[in-house]
Design a protein around this nucleic acid. Structure first.
Length: 570
RNA sequence: UGGGGCGUGGCCAAGCGGCAAGGCACGGGAUUUUGGUUCCCGCAUUCGUAGGUUCGAAUCCUACCGCCCCAGCCA
């Protein structure tokens, strides 16, 4: 964990802004109140985690409240399945909304009433222009728009038409309700934005009660104000919606004072990107639909569900977010930082275990045949209270294929013909002979061990630089290990516009190792627990993929590997 | 050619007129029965650029440059 002050590292510009609001008494009698407003049309990803944790942590820091509110105003794209997955993900992250679970759709009736008041005040009108016409009338980025010919209908006519829209008398797309603001505004959002549209589509919560649905720009500020949200945090692309947000809130306070008294204020912050992955919902969906991954919760996905299945912890994700920080500048966080956070946590919490992912057999020629001896090993080095375990050692073992080189460079500290290496927790062995098959592949190493070199009781005076892990063949348990790596081969998979981002997919992003020999203690591992496979990385015993007697471990992250760097440099 | 936003080392990010925090990454060294961990040390004479104000500017002013967002009856 990063060093914590009383605020954690949550001292960003929003934190200071809220503090100032409090000092100036801007919140009146209210406490700080934030919200997370997901649309239930997809899975949450790590970028959402930033918003969730920011809103939740800010509320907690100021002893305020945090709402979960589903922004479910578009029944065409939204489903209960996503409501469920989103709640599960937020809960897992540790953001607690208490009893404040809300749905935008819960307020449809109040919103309708508010819309009526806008009409009565002459500030909204029913527009019969087609979708294409509205677009034409809107003007362009550089030219002002034109006023709709329906802009000056009488209040009575608007009221009647809006009521008939509600009653289902008109087909989809035939009419909309628009706010009457300013068709010549440089801000397109203010050019008489559509605030209600006709959608004869049943809603996942309100069923077929409504056939008109409010638009985000109308709905969101009103919902915020209604719930008494003091600080409505959103991403930076909404910055130019803020004048409209304020317009809606101001009108709600003025025209609907019996339900809206507080002026919520919107503050924007930059969304986060991550290296070696993509974050847009559209691209993530393609990865799923085109089967590049096995689902939204595939451990290679940057989704919360994917990170969870990979084995990341909520603490590591929160730590990561705090270290990344919050600002208004577009940013791409380094995956290495996320990896650092999970390693830092697991280094002191994960028990060690030995497994040989790519085994080669070693026969210890001078080992008393049939004999097994126990090697005592620490569960977590440097943490005595984590205890030790007994690992069986005998005359035939597996070691990692990459821990042997027939013709090694001088800096190679592991096993080679005529060289010695220590077997972690056991003895020093000496490589006498290399046995190969017809294809020249090493099939077996014949080594001798030095009885004087027993771990912890070494009287030989020998010093070896290399220590490798091993598994006794006779006692080996078998597991499946999913070796996950970055889903993309380059930091920014989207950087080259002329090629599809899927062309940058890493073909090695998943390597499945079956029948991996592991020390017998692996059989007692609890599903959902995390381990360090010595020298190989941190692994998560995936409860979803494992079956009785058939454990499946997902590699969360590799260990740092200085040797790999040395090798690369040559 | 309109509106909004952003530019501090490879990636984030503090800084708010007094002389560039911190983290990750990277490089070097020590310790180490994980080439892991830990521990030292190094890493922006400079803050997009150019002018100006000032005793003093990343911080104020001006101009310019670059990048991002906006023309859904999506959110």
């Amino acid at each position: 964990m990063a060093e914590k002050t009383e605020t954690g590292s949550m001292t960003n510009f929003i934190y200071y802004m809220i503090k100032e609001d409090l000092e100036k008494g801007l919140l009146k009698d209210k406490c700080v109140h934030t919200r997370f407003p997901p649309e239930p049309n997809g899975y949450l990803h790590i970028g959402h985690a930033k918003a969730i944790l920011l809103n939740y942590t800010l509320a907690r820091l100021f002893s305020g409240k945090f709402n979960l509110r589903f922004d479910d105003t578009n029944p065409i794209r939204e489903e209960q399945e996503f409501v469920d997955s989103i709640m599960a993900d937020i809960r897992w992250l540790g953001a607690d909304w208490g009893d404040r679970l809300f749905f935008s759709s819960d307020y449809f009736d109040l919103k309708y009433q508010f819309a009526v008041r806008l009409i009565e005040a002459g500030r909204a009108y029913v527009c019969d222009l087609s979708q294409e016409e509205i677009r034409d009338y809107r003007g362009t980025l550089t030219e002002p728009g034109k006023e709709s010919p329906y802009r000056n209908r009488t209040v009575e006519e608007n009221l009647e038409l809006f009521n008939r829209m509600r009653n289902g008398e008109f087909p989809d797309g035939s009419r909309v309700l628009r706010a009457k603001i300013d068709m010549s505004s440089g801000n397109l959002n203010m050019r008489d934005p559509v605030i209600y549209r006709i959608l004869h589509t049943p809603h996942h919560r309100s069923g077929d009660q409504w056939c008109i649905y409010p638009m985000y720009d109308f709905d969101h500020p009103f919902s915020d104000a209604l719930e008494g949200i003091t600080h409505s945090l959103c991403s930076i692309e909404y910055a130019d919606h803020r004048p409209l947000y304020d317009w809606i809130v101001d009108n709600a306070v003025e025209l609907f004072p019996e339900v809206v008294q507080f002026r919520s204020r919107q503050t924007e912050f930059a969304r986060m990107n991550l290296t070696y992955t993509v974050m847009s919902k559209r691209k993530l969906r393609r990865l799923v639909e085109e089967k590049y991954v096995q689902g939204w919760d595939d451990p290679r996905m940057p989704t919360i569900a994917g990170l969870r299945k990979r084995g990341f912890t909520p603490d590591a994700i929160a730590d990561f977010q705090e270290r990344v920080g919050v600002s208004r500048a577009e940013s791409t966080a380094d995956l290495a930082l996320l990896e650092h956070c999970i390693r830092e946590e697991l280094e002191i919490t994960a028990s060690r275990l030995m497994a040989v992912l790519d085994p080669v057999k070693v026969v210890i020629t001078n080992w008393p045949s049939g004999q097994t001896e126990m090697a005592e090993m620490e569960n977590i080095p440097g943490n005595e209270s984590a205890g030790t375990r007994q690992v069986p050692f005998s005359g035939e073992i597996y070691i990692e294929r990459e821990d042997f080189m027939e013709d090694p460079p001088k800096k190679f500290f592991r096993l080679a013909p005529g060289r010695e290496v220590r077997l972690k927790g056991a003895y020093i062995i000496y490589c006498q002979e290399v046995i190969k098959d017809a294809g020249g592949n090493v099939t077996e190493l014949r080594c001798s061990y030095d009885p004087q070199t027993k771990s912890g009781a070494d009287t030989s005076g020998k010093k070896v630089k290399g220590v490798i892990h091993w598994v006794a063949i006779e006692h080996a348990a078998r597991i499946t290990a999913n070796l996950y790596d970055n889903l993309f081969t380059i930091e920014n998979p989207e950087e080259e516009r002329d090629i599809d981002f899927t062309d940058n997919i890493n073909p090695q992003s998943l390597v499945v190792c079956k029948d991996v020999p592991a020390e017998p203690a692996v059989a007692e591992a609890a599903p959902g627990s995390r381990f360090q496979f010595l020298r190989k990385g941190y692994f998560y015993l995936d409860p979803k993929s494992s079956a009785a007697g058939q454990p499946v471990f997902n590699r969360i992250v590799k260990l740092k590997d200085t040797w790999a760097k040395v090798k690369k440099k040559g």
